[in-house]
């Protein structure tokens, strides 16, 4: 990260909302598994990861609300925006699919966030640095847990291998987006607040490479990549996720819960 250029408030807010939305939406997706996992041990493991993600989202929304300075709360930001205002990447909103797809999605996101948080731990923004220092340990475990499952399923039975290959194909179009730089990330990086997403690709590959090698899986480059999440253009599944998420807040405006 470069030396201390400054960042304007709207840019910092956008950066924080992107991160917060990523974590909320993936935590939400993961929580959909609770009570329906393939084995009881995994019914405990997945909520652990979801709780880490929701905790990180809360810290980020709280800080975002603070930066915005309009008196909004973490819940206002999490629950009361329009679909086009959510800035999460498309990867995290992808439906759970089967267990292979859920674990691969988790691994991809964690393998992106680990180098991100490592860099952000020395952010010029003390709040971001604080969130990063805590998150980096949590995400390291997510890599281990999801990575183990990718190995286990890739190198398990014929069926599990086929499902893992399907998951790789299914998620491939959504990977490039997470490494995308744009004026927001350029400014954040110049101000030493957060790394450029594109700079994290080598670290991501260093994490995924050995896991895929051990699993006997091949990484594929899709013919087309999907983008748009960072500008609030989501897949059709996102509206239903938000319908669930926002249901009570929208039904009873202004109430306290």
């Amino acid at each position: 990260m470069g030396a201390a250029a400054t960042i304007d408030r709207d840019t910092l807010l956008t950066l924080l909302l992107r991160l917060a939305d990523d974590h909320l939406v993936l935590g939400h997706r993961l929580s959909e598994w609770c009570g329906h996992a393939p084995m009881l041990e995994e019914d405990l493991a997945m909520p652990n990861m979801a709780l880490d993600l929701i905790g990180q989202a809360r810290a980020l929304y709280t800080y975002a609300a603070d930066v915005e300075g309009k008196g909004r709360t973490e819940d206002d930001l999490a629950y009361l925006r329009l679909e086009r205002e959510y800035l999460n990447c498309l990867l995290v909103e992808r439906p759970n699919g089967d267990f292979a797809q859920t674990m691969l999605r988790q691994l991809y996101f964690a393998a992106f966030m680990e180098p991100f948080w490592k860099a952000a731990a020395s952010s010029t923004d003390a709040t971001v640095a604080g969130i990063a220092a805590k998150a980096v340990k949590e995400v390291a475990y997510h890599i281990r847990h999801a990575g183990e499952w990718v190995v286990r399923l890739g190198d398990g039975t014929e069926e599990s291998r086929r499902r893992m290959e399907d998951a790789i194909e299914e998620l491939a179009p959504y990977l490039d987006e997470i490494f995308e730089d744009d004026p927001v990330t350029v400014q954040a990086s110049a101000a030493g607040i957060a790394p450029q997403p594109s700079s994290l690709r080598p670290a991501f590959d260093r994490i995924i490479g050995p896991i895929f090698a051990e699993a006997g899986l091949t990484f594929i480059t899709p013919p087309y990549s999907q983008r748009g999440g960072r500008k609030g253009m989501h897949g059709e599944a996102m509206g239903f996720l938000l319908a669930d998420l926002q249901h009570i807040q929208r039904t009873y405006p202004g109430a306290t819960w």
């Binding site: 041990e41 405990l44 493991a45 847990h145 183990e148």
Partner: peptide, 13 residues
């Protein structure tokens, strides 16, 4: 490996 992770997720929350 799975046993260690399960133990961590179940018994150290």
């Amino acid at each position: 490996v799975m046993a260690l992770q399960a133990a961590r997720d179940v018994y150290t929350r």
